[in-house]
Design a binder for these strands. Structure first.
Length: 297
DNA sequence: CGCCTTTGACCGGCGC
DNA sequence: GCGCCGGTCAAAGGCG
């Protein structure tokens, strides 16, 4: 009970409970989990213009997940530039989504230990999206490079939770990966924050549609969005709820800096990006999307 | 040599 | 106030 309550404001944990609890549809889609499955969800992707939504989603869309997380990446298409600009314009309206430690590298006094910086600074959650995928591997390929910075045992779960951070020093995006205690074949991935750079490798055939882009950038109304997705996470806590719609789009400063000084093609990975990855196999990429849907508590 | 993972410790939030 | 728990840090070691 307590855990469930805690889970209510913890998407990752919440996803874990998704299978046993119900969720109220919350307009706060900045902190929600989505689950897809079968033809219906496949059609959902279609509705969002995700061009390649094969049986195994990830097999084609390397940039899919980051996009879904709200860490929108400009599509490697003509629409890219327009959406980047949109993101930036939207970001200006974001009162939340402060750099948890993002721009810290520039702002944090070097003499202050990184740990102590958290003192007196209330942790402000960034928009998060959780997904459940059926996969043999824990760390699903999503087109970005991640560095593991922690692993913790999860209460009531035999499987540890891994914490990853985007390797881009200017990017604050994090993600948690854990396995469902109920179904070990299900990997729960929770993204937090927004990428401020391009994916390492772009998906073949485009990443995201206008609708999806709008969705992930918060430009698509939650009401309309809910027609296609099942946000199953509610965030009872005020600090999360209050950061709902206005934190959806907040490209980090680095993104704007890069955009300003770099004229690189949208298909060119960031400087920190390694060479394009070899053709991925199904395993290791985003696995089968697990159907969950909504339930009533 | 650089990047990454591992892992124990630490810190803050929250419930009781 | 205390204890639990999630999240993060950072040193150490491994790997290519």
């Amino acid at each position: 009970m307590e855990d469930k309550h805690r889970a209510a404001h913890d998407p990752a944990t919440a996803g874990e409970f998704a299978g046993e609890s119900s969720w109220t549809l919350n307009a706060d889609y900045s902190d929600a989990a989505y689950y897809f499955s079968g033809e219906r969800e496949r059609s959902m992707f279609g509705d969002f213009g995700w061009n390649h939504v094969p049986d195994r989603i990830a097999a084609t869309d390397e940039g899919l997940w980051p996009s879904m997380t709200g860490s929108i990446e400009p599509p490697a298409t003509a629409a890219a530039s327009s959406y980047r600009s949109n993101n930036q314009s939207v970001s200006s309206s974001s009162s939340e989504d402060p750099p948890e430690k993002s721009t810290v590298s520039d702002e944090k006094p070097p003499e202050i230990p990184s740990k102590s910086k958290k003192k007196g600074q209330k942790r402000i959650r960034q928009p998060r999206f959780a997904f459940m995928t059926k996969s043999e591997v824990d760390h699903l390929e999503d087109g970005y490079r991640w560095r593991k910075y922690g692993q913790k045992a999860v209460k009531n779960s035999p499987f540890p939770r891994s914490y990853y951070r985007c390797t881009n020093s200017k990017c604050t995006v994090k993600k948690r990966v854990e396995r469902s205690s109920e179904d070990p074949t299900i990997v729960i991935t929770t993204y937090e924050g927004r990428h401020c750079h391009h994916t390492v490798g772009f998906p073949r055939g485009g990443i995201i549609s206008h609708e999806a882009a709008a969705f992930t950038t918060g430009q698509l109304a939650p009401t309309s969005m809910s027609q296609f997705y099942y946000p199953i996470i509610q965030s009872p806590r005020s600090d999360i709820n209050t950061c709902s719609s206005n934190i959806i789009s907040q490209p980090c400063q680095a993104a704007q800096d890069e955009a300003g000084r770099s004229s690189r093609s949208t298909t060119t990975p960031a400087s920190d990006a390694p060479p394009p990855q070899p053709a991925p196999t199904d395993e290791g990429l985003l696995g089968d999307i697990v159907p969950l849907g909504m339930r009533n508590r």
